[in-house]
């Protein structure tokens, strides 16, 4: 599989660049659109990771439902374009944010560099079914047996979120 590494770099580059542009973009509509592109690249990475189920829910639920909800709210509110951070944010918080972001990236990179140098790429051989159909089938079997309780609680969570959203968005309760 010689094309796996180039594909990884292409998807990773798209994900990083679009995510950075989401942060750098001043118009919220463009931010949401770029985030959809970023999530599409992440779905490609999930396919490379032998997780087609996650790739599909990434596209359908994240890009299809959650981000369209964001887009809907952005267009509904008709928010004014945000002023540039260097005009708007005081110098102190702005520097703190930049420094914290860089520190976090450096810290994570250092930890990974030192902790996992000796790891061999595991991949095949450990029992992960490589075939897509088997993968989804295995997820279903584990989800509805071992994680059945968590799955049921999820429905309660969604009900609470739905009621909460309706109550919050109503003018008078």
């Amino acid at each position: 599989m010689g094309f796996e590494l180039p594909l990884f770099y292409v998807f990773a580059a798209v994900a990083v660049v679009t995510s950075a542009l989401v942060i750098g973009q001043r118009s919220p509509v463009y931010s949401v659109m770029l985030l959809i592109a970023s999530f599409a690249a992440l779905a490609g990475l999930y396919v490379l990771l032998d997780a087609p189920f996650v790739a599909v829910i990434q596209i359908i639920i994240y890009a299809g439902a959650i981000l369209v909800l964001f887009l809907f709210v952005v267009m509904l509110l008709n928010a004014p374009k945000e002023a540039a951070p260097w005009e708007r944010v005081a110098a102190g918080p702005r520097r703190a944010g930049a420094v914290l972001g860089v520190v976090l990236a450096g810290e994570l990179a250092w930890a990974l560099w030192h902790a996992a140098l000796s790891r061999e790429p595991a991949g095949g051989g450990q029992g992960m079914p490589a075939h897509a159909i088997d993968s989804v089938r295995a997820i279903g079997q584990v989800l509805y047996t071992d994680y059945a309780f968590a799955f049921e609680v999820t429905s309660l969570l969604i009900l609470v979120a739905m009621v909460g959203a309706v109550v919050l968005a109503k003018r008078r309760v």
Binding site: A20, A96, A98, G101
Partner: peptide, 9 residues
Amino acid sequence: AIGTTGVFL
């Protein structure tokens, strides 16, 4: 890190 920076900035 990009996400964290965005929250701060």
